[in-house]
């Protein structure tokens, strides 16, 4: 608990919060096949967009991609935070309630039916994710949506989607399979820059609405009965949070496939560092998740450049040890 007290550590934490996004963005812009020194990076940034290869790479490839990583990381982290609070389950992640299964099924169905135009698989994933979530919700509603029913029906819908998915992959030609697998593993290079603005609007409004629900989320962590006794309309709030978190996940999946780990662990890390109150947790986990994915993606692009390794591998390799370290030292915070 030595971290908790002391003006010095508090100051460091605050400074880190300010510098973290800038550092992550800078790193993300500097890393990749084309090696850029910090001074070159600064010069290119001052130059503005242009036709040169360096300028093209920086302004048309790296910057959109860094912003996409930030967006996807923030969306996943936000929805993870919300799902964990609503379900009161530390293992809840954005993909738990069949969302990943639905999204994957949607995308792969589109790919294997031959609709491979850039727009279709993400849209199909988005629709698949929301459909799965709605199905889970409708099934669980028969039992007044107890968290256990929700999780169980989520897992079931997920398995069902996974089975259909395996079937589709089995009968798809190998090119489509590779395309699908690549997409399932999570990849930030696929989204077209045109989507970025829409993504930011979507995730931004999701963030604001969830932030406005911060006290309600706090109450939901106390269990359904206590929350109701404290004056919360539990069913309505839960539906609202579900819809918001589900929409954020669907957006992230549509933009980047299934990027694992961020939504599960970043909320925990933030809770360990800043406590469980959602008024702070919501913005901080969005910030932290975004920065984390920017850095992870920068590493994924540069370790074996020009080849790229799956970003999910990097997020797990970076995040898991850090999380274990935190558990070791502040473990009861969960």
């Amino acid at each position: 608990m030595k971290v908790q007290s002391g003006a010095k550590t508090a100051w460091i934490r605050r400074a880190a919060l300010l510098l973290l996004p800038l550092a992550a963005l800078a790193w993300s812009l500097a890393a990749g096949s084309l090696e850029l020194s910090w001074s070159e990076l600064a010069a290119l940034l001052l130059q503005g967009p242009g036709d040169g290869i360096e300028q093209t790479i920086l302004w048309r490839i790296r910057l959109p991609r860094a912003l996409l990583a930030a967006l996807v990381g923030a969306a996943l982290s936000l929805s993870g935070t919300s799902f964990q609070a609503v379900l009161r389950n530390p293992l809840a992640d954005p993909y738990l309630l069949g969302v990943s299964g639905g999204a994957a099924l949607g995308a792969v169905a589109a790919i294997s039916l031959g609709f491979t135009a850039a727009l279709v698989p993400p849209l199909a994933a988005f629709i698949g994710a929301l459909t799965a979530l709605a199905l889970v919700y409708l099934v669980a509603r028969a039992h007044s949506c107890s968290t256990h029913t929700l999780i169980l029906s989520g897992v079931m819908v997920g398995s069902l989607a996974a089975a259909l998915l395996l079937f589709l992959l089995w009968r798809a030609p190998s090119d489509a399979t590779r395309q699908a697998v690549f997409w399932l593993a999570g990849n930030l290079s696929l989204a077209t820059p045109g989507w970025l603005a829409w993504g930011w609007i979507w995730v931004g409004s999701g963030f604001l609405l969830l932030w406005a629900c911060a006290p309600q989320l706090d109450l939901l962590t106390q269990g359904e009965e206590s929350a109701a006794d404290l004056g919360l309309n539990v069913a309505r709030t839960r539906l609202l949070v579900f819809t918001l978190a589900g929409a954020l996940t669907a957006c992230a999946v549509a933009l980047a496939g299934l990027v694992g780990f961020v939504g599960l662990v970043i909320p925990h890390i933030c809770r360990l560092l800043w406590g469980p109150g959602h008024r702070l947790l919501i913005p901080l986990s969005a910030l932290f998740g975004g920065c984390f994915l920017m850095i992870a993606d920068a590493i994924a692009r540069s370790v074996y450049a020009p080849a790229e390794i799956p970003v999910g591998v990097v997020t797990a390799l970076l995040g898991a040890p850090f999380f274990l370290y935190l558990l070791r030292h502040k473990g009861d915070g969960l």
């Binding site: 990749g32 096949s33 084309l34 290869i53 490839i61 790296r62 690549f182 074996y304 020009p306 390794i309």
Partner: peptide, 20 residues
């Protein structure tokens, strides 16, 4: 294509532009 961990590596647009 330089040697790497994968015989058939996945590339991104940046690798394409850098390699030219």
């Amino acid at each position: 294509v330089p040697p790497g961990p994968s015989r058939y590596p996945a590339w991104n647009d940046e690798s394409l532009l850098t390699t030219d």
